[in-house]
Design a protein around this nucleic acid. Structure first.
Length: 429
RNA sequence: UCCCAAAUAGCUCAACGGCAGAGCAAUCGGCUGUUAACCGAUAGGUUGCAGGUUCGAAUCCUGCUUUGGGAGCCA
């Protein structure tokens, strides 16, 4: 029966069969070392010429990088092996002799690797990142589910923009114009009025000509929305969620973090509560640091980094000027020139990973905002209805998955955090 | 959209106005404990494209294409 490499520690001194790819080989005249992987882990297979059948010896000799095969062998503890185990190969059955493999066991350029992304993900480092991405998704969902949230799926095809500013991907819905979603938030507000606490998890699309290490054209967001929760309650959910996710990765992905060379001590400090500063205070801090910045402007990436560097935990910047934020955000009743919103800025220069706010629940004010922003009221009639039929205070936020993965993994660029990145000028593979 | 940089063997790079080279990968051979194994040999080229300067251009100039980094915008 087939077992996996991750499972071999349960089979010491036993004979096992595994299905594997050979990612590297080292050999001498009378001994061969096969570097084997099966997705669950890696192990070295050892063949001694005087101990295996010559046909098996020759078959092993002919294996090329990334050839696939079944291997029968005896699991042996060995302190010389990085994983602590080796496999003494008894028999093997070749499934496929791979053609010359483009990705060598050495350094490559980014362009080349992205062109071969379908193969690049086989590498130890990329596998570690995708494992951590999966763990992050798993821990987000299990946390929200355990806190009484329900997963609700908003549509991907939408009739118009949720937040007029960003560029949308245009497509056709038969004879009508349609756009790929850039946020499911407005639909989640409707869902929160039905189910109380909800969250969405899905892809979003921005046709922005952004070319930085923090941007993708297609990326995934988690968007929780909560009825009867105010601005402060919103922040508490966010910090608890993020600390839970970081601690889950620390517990369940030790090997992967080690492969990535991540500084664990920085992640261990990520415990709720997170520091909060207002926009006003952030501006003061920037000015004190010698930055020329006027109240009312939005922060750029360098500003966020400068502020985040003053803290070891993610930083909430709250209550931005109304003019630079989205139309649906609720003004502070005591100070209507700012809104009850917060951005969560990750440490170490990873930038904004969450944007959230309390939403406008007053139908009159929302109507006014539609006029001010020149939004088509017809397209948003359903959204106005939410305020007409039992409106309640409610809040929500959007968590950018790829930026979160990049931060937790300690990566230079978000392109490695998603299996097949969609970037400006790159849609292959 | 703007600013900066790069493009040479399958890959990573060198050659910077005067014979286009090395390492890795590939192929062949050697080696009984290798960890990106090592050693020897073989093969591998329209120097991104188009023009220009020059006795001579991978090298200098102009345009284009592609890619990377950054800005803006955002998650």
């Amino acid at each position: 029966m087939l077992t996996t490499i991750a499972n071999l520690h349960n089979h010491i001194e036993e004979e096992v069969k595994i299905g594997v790819w050979m990612y590297n080989k080292r050999s001498s005249g009378k001994i061969q070392f096969l570097q084997l992987r099966d997705g669950s882990g890696t192990i070295q297979g050892v063949l001694l010429k005087n101990q295996v059948d010559s046909s098996i010896w020759d078959a092993a000799k002919n294996l090329t990088q990334e050839s696939s095969l079944y291997v029968w062998g005896k699991v042996r503890k060995d302190d010389r092996a990085p994983s602590g185990f080796e496999l003494d190969v008894i028999n093997l059955e070749v499934i496929h002799i791979a053609e010359e493999y483009p990705i060598a066991n050495k350094e490559h350029g980014v362009d080349f690797l992205l062109d071969h992304r379908h193969l690049w993900i086989r590498s130890e480092r990329q596998r570690a990142i995708l494992k951590i991405r999966a763990e992050i998704i798993r821990s987000i969902q299990s946390y929200l589910d355990s806190e009484g949230f329900n997963l609700v799926d908003p549509p991907v095809l939408t009739p118009s923009s949720c937040e007029g500013t960003t560029n949308l991907f245009h497509t056709k819905y038969f004879d009508e114009d349609a756009y790929l979603t850039q946020s499911g938030q407005l639909y989640m507000e409707a869902a929160a009025m039905a189910l109380g606490r909800v969250y969405s998890f899905g892809p979003t699309f921005r046709a922005e000509k952004s070319k930085t290490r923090r941007h993708l054209i297609e990326f995934w967001m988690i968007e929780p929305e909560m009825a009867f929760v105010d601005h402060q309650g919103n922040l508490e959910v966010q910090e608890k969620l993020v600390s839970h996710v970081v601690q889950s990765v620390l517990t369940n992905c030790k090997l992967e973090l080690k492969v990535l060379g991540r500084d664990i001590s920085k992640l261990e400090k990520i415990q709720a509560p997170f520091p909060r500063i207002t926009y006003d205070e952030a501006v003061e801090r920037l000015q004190k640091a010698g930055v020329d910045f006027t109240w009312g402007d939005d922060f750029g990436a360098p500003h966020e980094t400068l502020l985040a560097e003053q803290f070891e935990r993610p930083l909430f910047i709250t209550e931005y000027p109304t003019g630079i934020k989205a139309f649906y955000m609720k003004p502070n009743p005591e100070r209507p020139e700012v809104v009850l919103c917060a951005d969560m800025i990750a440490p170490e220069g990873y930038g904004e990973i969450i944007g959230g706010s309390q939403r406008i629940d007053d139908p009159v004010l929302l109507e006014k905002r539609f006029q001010e922003h020149d939004l088509p009221t017809k397209d948003y009639a359903w959204y106005m209805d939410l305020r007409k039929y039992g409106t309640v205070p409610h809040s929500g936020f959007g968590l950018g998955l790829e930026r979160t993965v990049a931060w937790i993994c300690g990566l230079e660029h978000v392109r490695e955090t998603i299996p097949f990145p969609r970037m400006l000028n790159r849609m292959y593979p």
